[in-house]
Design a protein around this nucleic acid. Structure first.
Lengths: 140, 140
DNA sequence: GTCTCAATTGAGATATAGTCTCGATAGTCA
DNA sequence: TGACTATCGAGACTATATCTCAATTGAGAC
């Protein structure tokens, strides 16, 4: 969805410079998730600092979301609308989004029980997708 | 609970060397949470690599747990028993543990709906504790 | 007590991920 | 078109963590 990403980018971000267009296009070209370093490597004509800056802007604009992988590394992917979480397959690295009001409600209830005001939360679920469950591997 | 930590350490870890004793003692001395770097700085006579190695061992042994802070940094703290999550106060940095079967159940159900086999999950909740809610600050 | 040997250590090099600085460049608007 | 200012890019810098490998040491055998 290159158009969508570019359109959202233009709408949310200040100046539409050549660098930002290049980053947005590269992001849109990615299938699935990617790291900031990989994107920087794919854009040799754009400075690393600019890639990081633009990723931050895109994330804040809701175009991208960050995924904490199993091994602790941080990846990015095009974001679905609204707050959501990720099911990360430790076998093939595939990521599914999910949004669930039950999780949000439980978190709020628990927090209230501890006199805690929730401002946000981070939930990542790790496991194996259908394909990787049926084909057991030595991984992990 | 220095004794407890040391006892658990001895039970789970191989050789009880001076370095490991020093790390365990320093961990037990910490109130609340701490970073690996802070612990390494507090132990000038123990190599950094050894501190990191020992923290990893302690974490795998269940003596410590890792907490992903609001700003993305990784902290450690003495672990309560069993799987649990954290309520992290973004105001004062206080951390409360919580364990809840509802969260686990919801995660499993959602995963099943997506033909996903859950192997683990990571949940951190950010907000403000009672003290920090009543005293609004500019932080964040 | 001391011998042996594999586990462990520590110093420092290396890797990884991200931020900062600052002069140069270029987008936007009058 | 020109001026203003946001943004860029190179690369230095910071923070965090891991790796390498010779030296050391703990634990058990004797």
């Amino acid at each position: 969805m290159p158009q969508l990403a570019a359109a959202r980018l233009a709408a949310r971000v200040g100046r539409m410079t050549a660098s930002r267009r290049a980053v947005a296009a590269a992001v849109a070209r990615q299938r699935g998730h990617f790291t900031a370093e990989a994107l920087a490597a794919a854009l040799p004509n754009v400075g690393r600092a600019t890639v990081y800056r633009t990723l931050k802007i895109l994330t804040e604009a809701g175009v991208l979301c960050r995924v904490l992988m199993d091994d602790g590394s941080l990846h990015y992917r095009l974001s679905g609308p609204g707050h959501h979480h990720h099911l990360v397959c430790v076998g093939c690295g595939a990521i599914q989004d999910f949004a669930d009001s039950v999780v949000e409600r439980v978190v709020s209830q628990l927090a209230r029980a501890g006199s805690f005001t929730v401002e946000g939360h981070w939930l990542e679920v790790y496991g194996r997708c259908a394909g990787c469950s049926t084909a057991p591997s030595a991984a992990r």
